[in-house]
Amino acid sequence: MAMNGTITTWFKDKGFGFIKDENGDNRYFHVIKVANPDLIKKDAAVTFEPTTNNKGLSAYAVKVVPL
């Protein structure tokens, strides 16, 4: 089920960042999981599918909501 969130941290040079989800949890995401990576920036609103990996909470099918 899709969730909403906000990008809180973005490491462009490393290709990953973190999203604060609607429950207040931080989720890892990688640029290859983003549909529109050219719009990635700190504080951008996103929708995504929540999941977990071996390191904890993460996100896939991430879409940055255009302003």
Rank of each mutant, 00 (worst) to 15 (best):
M1V: 13
M1R: 13
M1F: 11
A2M: 13
A2E: 10
A2H: 13
M3Q: 04
N4K: 14
N4M: 13
G5Y: 03
G5D: 01
G5T: 00
G5Q: 00
T6G: 02
T6W: 13
T6E: 04
I7E: 00
T8Y: 09
T9I: 14
T9Q: 14
W10H: 02
W10M: 02
F11C: 08
F11T: 03
K12N: 08
D13N: 12
D13E: 12
K14C: 07
K14G: 06
K14Y: 09
K14N: 05
K14S: 07
G15M: 07
G15E: 05
G15C: 07
G15P: 01
G15H: 07
F16T: 03
F16D: 02
I19L: 08
I19W: 02
I19G: 00
K20W: 07
K20P: 01
K20H: 10
K20M: 11
K20L: 14
K20Q: 09
D21N: 00
D21F: 02
E22C: 09
E22K: 06
N23R: 10
N23K: 11
G24Y: 04
G24M: 04
D25W: 06
D25C: 10
D25Q: 11
N26K: 13
N26V: 15
R27V: 05
H30T: 12
H30R: 07
H30Q: 08
H30W: 06
V31R: 13
I32K: 15
K33R: 14
K33S: 15
V34Y: 03
V34Q: 03
A35Q: 14
A35L: 15
N36H: 06
P37E: 04
P37R: 08
P37G: 04
P37H: 05
D38H: 13
D38C: 11
L39N: 07
L39T: 06
L39G: 06
K41G: 06
K41S: 09
K41N: 07
K41P: 01
K42N: 06
K42G: 04
D43R: 09
D43A: 09
D43L: 08
A44H: 04
A44Q: 06
A45G: 07
V46A: 02
V46F: 01
V46G: 01
V46K: 00
T47K: 08
F48E: 01
F48A: 00
F48D: 02
E49I: 15
E49S: 15
E49V: 15
E49N: 14
P50F: 04
T51F: 14
T51V: 14
T52N: 10
N53E: 07
N53S: 11
N54H: 13
N54G: 13
K55A: 09
K55Y: 15
K55M: 12
K55H: 13
G56I: 08
L57I: 05
S58M: 09
S58W: 07
S58A: 14
S58E: 10
A59G: 03
Y60R: 15
Y60G: 12
Y60I: 15
A61Y: 09
A61I: 05
V62H: 02
V62L: 04
K63Y: 11
V64T: 03
V65D: 08
V65E: 09
P66R: 11
P66Q: 13
P66A: 13
L67F: 12
